[in-house]
C-alpha cells in the first residue's frame, strides 16, 4: 500500500508574525520557515505504518516555491521514501492544492492520503476534505488514532463533544489532529540519507491543473491589541473587582 503525504512549508511555529506596514500581507523576509506541524504528524503516521509492515512506500508531496525542496528533504529524513515537488510561484489556495494532489493521486494510485488538518499560516482546514471530494473518496478528519486492517481504516476523530470512530473503505483521506502521535526527531544519518532519496519536480501545467487563486486578499491588518490590565493583591480584591468593576459575577 502506497501512502501519499502532502507537506507544506510555512512560517515556523515559534515565530511571532508581523503584518507588513502597507497592509499587503505578512512580512516573510528572513523569517524561519519549517514544515507545518500537522504535516509532520502526518509523515510520522505514514512512516509508522510502513515500519509496521502495512505501507510499502511513503511519498511526500509539496506544492509551492523551489525552497519547498527543504520541506520534502525533512519529510524524507523522517522516513518518506521519495518526494514530489509541484513547483510554482503562484499563491496556492486549498482548492488548487487539492486539484494538484488529485492529479498526483491519479498518477501514483495511493491507497491512503494522510495530511495535516490545517496549515498554521492560512488556518484554512480545507485541502484534505477537498481532495477526498474530488476523488470521491471517504474522509476521516481530525484523527487521533488510525488503525488499518482488511482494506479499511478505523479512525478515531476529535470532535467538539468528545471522540467518534469512523470505519471507512480505502482509498481514503485522513487528516491529523495533534494527539495522533509525537513526530520523531530526524537523526543526522537519516538527514544525510534523505539527501540521496529521489526528488521529482513537476509544474502545475504538467498535471493539467489551473491554479489561479479564487480569493483575493484585499488587506491584512493587525488584530485589535489587548492590553495588560492590573495585578490584584489578593483574592478579596479580585472578587471585589469582578463584582463591582467588571460586573461579570
Amino acid at each position: 500500500m502506497k501512502i501519499l503525504v502532502p507537506v507544506k512549508r510555512v512560517v515556523d511555529y515559534n515565530v511571532k508574525v508581523r503584518v507588513k506596514a502597507d497592509g499587503s500581507g505578512i512580512d516573510l523576509a528572513n523569517v524561519k520557515m519549517s514544515m507545518n506541524p500537522f504535516d509532520e504528524i502526518a509523515i510520522e503516521e505514514a512512516v509508522r505504518l510502513k515500519e509496521a509492515g502495512i505501507a510499502t512506500e511513503v511519498i511526500a508531496v509539496s506544492c509551492g516555491v523551489t525552497a519547498c525542496q527543504e520541506t520534502l528533504r525533512t519529510a524524507m529524513a523522517i522516513g518518506a521514501d521519495r518526494g514530489i515537488l509541484v513547483e510554482t510561484d503562484v499563491e496556492l489556495q486549498p482548492l488548487a492544492v487539492a486539484k494538484l494532489l488529485q492529479a498526483l493521486c491519479v498518477k501514483e494510485q495511493p491507497q491512503l492520503v494522510i495530511c495535516g488538518k490545517q496549515a498554521i499560516d492560512d488556518d484554512a482546514n480545507q485541502t484534505g476534505q477537498m481532495l477526498a471530494a474530488l476523488q470521491n473518496w471517504p474522509q476521516a478528519t481530525f484523527a487521533s488514532k488510525v488503525v488499518i486492517a482488511n482494506g479499511k481504516a478505523s479512525v478515531t476523530r476529535e470532535i467538539d463533544g468528545g471522540l467518534e470512530t469512523l470505519e471507512i473503505s480505502l482509498p481514503a483521506v485522513v487528516s491529523t489532529d495533534l494527539r495522533l502521535n509525537e513526530p520523531r526527531y530526524a537523526t543526522l544519518p537519516n538527514i544525510m540519507k534523505a539527501k540521496k532519496k529521489p526528488l521529482e519536480t513537476v509544474k502545475p501545467a504538467d498535471l493539467g491543473v489551473d491554479v489561479t487563486p479564487r480569493l483575493t486578499t484585499l488587506k491584512v491588518s493587525e488584530p485589535p491589541k489587548r492590553s495588560a490590565g492590573i495585578k490584584v493583591a489578593d483574592v478579596a480584591e479580585l472578587v471585589n473587582k469582578l463584582k463591582n468593576e467588571a460586573k461579570v459575577i
Partner: peptide
Amino acid sequence: GQISEITGVESADTFVRPIYAGNALATVK
C-alpha cells in the same frame, strides 16, 4: 474556494477572517 472561519462581513463577497492563529486579520474577496 471556501472562506474559512469568517469573523466579519464587509459585503456579499468580502469577508474578514483570522490567519496565523489570529495574529493577523485578512480581508478577502
